[in-house]
Nucleic acid binder design. Structure first.
Lengths: 207, 207
DNA sequence: CCCCTTTGTGAAAAATGTTTGCAATGCCCG
DNA sequence: CGGGCATTGCAAACATTTTTCACAAAGGGG
């Protein structure tokens, strides 16, 4: 199926399905159904079937889906049949927490290198990673062929770093700073801003 | 305007507008237009006007929007015309990073109390907060009237803690664990899972 | 072979987003 | 003071996306 024809929102649900399937596999299950999977995630079974049908036929009528097989297919679709090297920019509290997070490698990502612009941090360690200067950032990233970056720098520096990332041919940025980055269409950006989520929920609260 | 009539997706954009407006205000600007705001965020001016029109009339024809006024109105709509007390459950690497994050208070949230179930952590400090035992969690949260919790515990414990939060009358949970929580409709949940975002982007990458 | 389950899918329905047009309004400048 | 210009708020029409529905086809168990 032509990737450009599949709605982005569908793509966004695939990792969710993969996460649930992985959990099921760890629990020792071998087979599931769209209904069970949907129940787990709060999504209708029809929508799951529809989403999957965009990419092929993965189930057996009357039986359901083989969990391992479907997970493998989703990994292939999402290009997770490989480990992606990722760079982390920013070794403050947040960057250090990210560096210490052990949940990346099992799900397809490996932190390859950590950077900061604070001279006093260069050479220190953020978890298992030595902190490097950003002086050679573009060259470093190019040499390592890194296409994905986690950006954990203050909002005031995020756009300027982003421009260097674009120059380094980075194609995907996960931005933790609470701002909107300006990038060309060829670069994908996703944002993580916990406050946005909190503010979304307070709308429904009263006090 | 009846809250139940406004699409949730619209509500989700309001914090984004508020964030951009706050940034503009900090830059010393006083006036903006739907066009400028949309350019900043990658959203059409018509959509911004339409979203805002769900709640009232906030702009001046020919002029645009007074940034401070519109920001105040958005805060009111989102119930951010007050500071919300929040509890943080989990004082591991992630919890500690959250505790050290200074970006909450300016945007309407104050961490009131931090909890962990590890006896060796009780009494230690996570940033400026003393770590408390979860023994009295329900009573503590009720006594403090806490309705919002940030959940930074391992996935394996998240559901069981969630059930205690529900019992404590918590109404909003920001879950950092990579699982889907099961909660009644009266409880709002939002998720933060960085890997989900990374996996979403790898779909568009090739290697 | 019959019954039960579940998939895959076309069609319908609902939700969301975009475009267009325009009256009303307010500012700026001559 | 008045005309020109910009922008909002709004409605209507339209387009697109997303979700839901319904059911034929297929698999498996007894």
């Amino acid at each position: 199926m032509n990737p450009s024809k599949v709605p982005d929102i569908v793509i966004g649900r695939l990792p969710l399905y993969l996460r649930a399937l992985t959990q099921m596999a760890q629990d020792g299950k071998e087979i599931t159904s769209s209904q069970e999977l949907g129940g787990e995630l709060g999504i209708s079974s029809a929508q799951i079937r529809k989403d999957l049908s965009q990419f092929g036929e993965f189930g057996k009528q009357g039986t359901g889906y083989n969990i391992e097989f479907l997970a493998d297919q989703l990994k292939r679709i999402l290009h997770l049949d490989q480990i992606w090297d990722v760079a982390l920019i920013g070794a403050g509290d947040l960057g250090t927490a990210i560096a210490n997070y052990g949940g990346f490698i099992d799900r397809g990502f490996r932190i390859r290198s950590v950077y900061d612009n604070d001279p006093s941090k260069i050479g220190t360690w953020a978890g298992a990673y030595e902190v490097h200067s950003v002086d050679q950032l573009e060259k470093d990233l190019r040499d390592m062929g890194i296409k994905i970056v986690m950006l954990a720098v203050p909002a005031s520096h995020a756009q300027e770093v982003t421009e260097r990332l674009i120059a380094a041919d980075v194609k995907a940025i996960l931005c933790y700073a609470p701002i909107s980055l300006s990038v060309p269409d060829s670069v994908k950006v996703q944002y993580i801003d916990p406050v946005l989520h909190l503010q979304h929920m307070t709308f429904y609260l009263s006090k």
